[in-house]
């Protein structure tokens, strides 16, 4: 089982990112669950979402303690949340941003999802949409296939800019 924890803030689309990722994994022929943790959050508060991907049906509903991958959609949550908490030995981090310098000693990758969203004018209520571009980055990391990433985005969103943003993230992420 491959376990992913996504850190974001309420309103940034972390929950939708989890659902898109689960849908893409499902289109790859895997079993997948997206279990957002709903706290007493409001817009702007740090939130976590969980995705599990496996070749067998998934029977776990509790929160992920030891993720294989941590995705940080909003690096500012790192001031209040230990995003590396419980990260599995050999686990990786995917950061929205231009640098991974705050993450020492773990394999970390950065891609400027916010920049991509702004370029594609993917902005809702003043917030850049990060949940569709991040799928491109996850495809680059081999978590899901490019084809399924696109399919998942198209199933949930009709605006083609979302697919373009994912393609841009795929291109820009350096592995």
């Amino acid at each position: 089982m491959y376990e992913i924890r996504i850190h974001s803030r309420g309103g940034q689309g972390g929950v939708t990112a989890a659902r898109l990722l689960a849908l893409a994994a499902f289109r790859d022929g895997k079993y997948a669950t997206a279990c957002p943790f709903y706290g007493a959050e409001r817009r702007g508060a740090p939130v976590v979402s969980y995705v599990r991907i496996d070749d067998r049906p998934i029977r776990v509903y509790s929160q992920i303690r030891n993720p294989d991958l941590v995705v940080v959609l909003d690096p500012s949550v790192m001031e209040v949340v230990d995003v590396l908490h419980g990260l599995k030995r050999g686990g990786k981090v995917l950061m929205n941003g231009t640098t991974t310098e705050k993450l020492h000693g773990v394999p970390a990758f950065a891609v400027d999802l916010t920049g991509i969203a702004l370029r594609e004018k993917l902005v809702i209520a003043g917030s850049p949409i990060l949940n569709t571009p991040v799928l491109g980055a996850l495809a680059k990391m081999g978590i899901i296939s490019v084809d399924s990433a696109k399919k998942a985005i198209q199933e949930m969103f009709s605006d083609e800019r979302n697919v373009r943003a994912a393609e841009a993230a795929f291109q820009e992420l350096v592995i």
Partner: peptide, 12 residues
């Protein structure tokens, strides 16, 4: 069905 744990979890 269990609130959030199942109501808001996505599965096939």
């Amino acid at each position: 069905l269990d609130g959030f744990l199942l109501s808001h979890s996505m599965q096939s």
